[in-house]
Amino acid sequence: MARPREFDEAAVLDAAVHCFWSRGYEATSVRDLIESTGLTGASIYNAFGDKRAFYRRALAHYVQESIADRIRRCEGMAPRAAIDAFFAEILKRSLSDKDHKGCMLVNAALEVAPQDTEFKEDVAGVLNQLQSFFLGCVAAGQADGTITTALTADELARHLLGVLMGVRVLARVRPEKEVLEGVINGAFALLDGGVDRAA
């Protein structure tokens, strides 16, 4: 009979997320993870596998606790308000990130996914979830008249995904309120019909 784990898995994953997120995958050593989580190397390996497997679990934990949770909270709102709330939270997180860590998912997309097929699929899957969330909001907003129909719902959803990725990358190197707000407000102007497609 397997012995029950003698640690709080969620707390360990939180610590691993912070460690990987602040240092990046390549620069994080197993020793860093031991110091951050309080586990021994053997305990980490037995519970989570090698560093790559541990990073994959930590990234999935980050996605559930941050991105998926935000989507769930916004899905219950009116469509245009949901988009506003989603980006308001992104702006707040970006501006309050004193270490300029950015988004762990975006960081993984840039650092790990290009060389690792499984991580590429993991990241792409989350980006698809984000695009689907935006698509649902836009389609519903177009139906109730709160979002322009000058562009298709698919076009606007893809644009919002690109804006989100851009804001999170900018937040790492230019975390200035006016810069990030300018990008987001431009996207909102497009949703509100402020840009003529013919132009």
Rank of each mutant, 00 (worst) to 15 (best):
E9C: 00
F48K: 05
K92I: 02
L191K: 07
T37A: 05
M77F: 11
D99E: 13
Q129C: 06
A15P: 00
K101V: 06
C137T: 03
S36F: 05
F54N: 02
R56N: 02
V12A: 08
M104P: 04
E118S: 09
G193C: 06
L190C: 13
A198D: 14
N107G: 13
G125Y: 01
R70L: 09
H18Q: 12
V173M: 14
P114T: 07
Y62F: 12
A85G: 00
F134Q: 01
A10G: 03
D192V: 01
S29M: 06
Y55G: 14
S132V: 06
F133H: 09
C74L: 06
L164F: 14
V173T: 15
E155D: 03
T152Q: 06
R168T: 11
G145R: 11
C103I: 13
A143I: 00
G141P: 05
L151Q: 08
R172C: 13
M104Q: 08
R57P: 01
R172S: 04
D144H: 04
V123L: 01
A198H: 14
M104F: 14
C137F: 00
A10I: 02
A189D: 13
L130H: 11
F134D: 09
D69V: 00
R172W: 03
V169G: 02
V126I: 13
C103N: 15
F119C: 06
A109S: 14
F134Y: 06
L95N: 10
P175H: 12
L135D: 05
R23S: 09
A47W: 13
S22P: 03
V106K: 13
V195D: 01
Y25L: 12
G145E: 03
A58N: 11
A78F: 05
H18C: 03
P114L: 07
S36D: 09
D32Y: 07
T117M: 15
R70T: 04
I71A: 08
D84N: 04
N185Y: 07
V173R: 11
E176L: 07
E181G: 03
F87I: 05
E118V: 14
Q131Y: 12
L160A: 09
C103L: 10
P79Q: 12
G194C: 08
F54S: 08
A150W: 09
L33N: 07
H18Y: 07
D69Q: 04
F20S: 06
V195L: 10
D144A: 04
V112G: 01
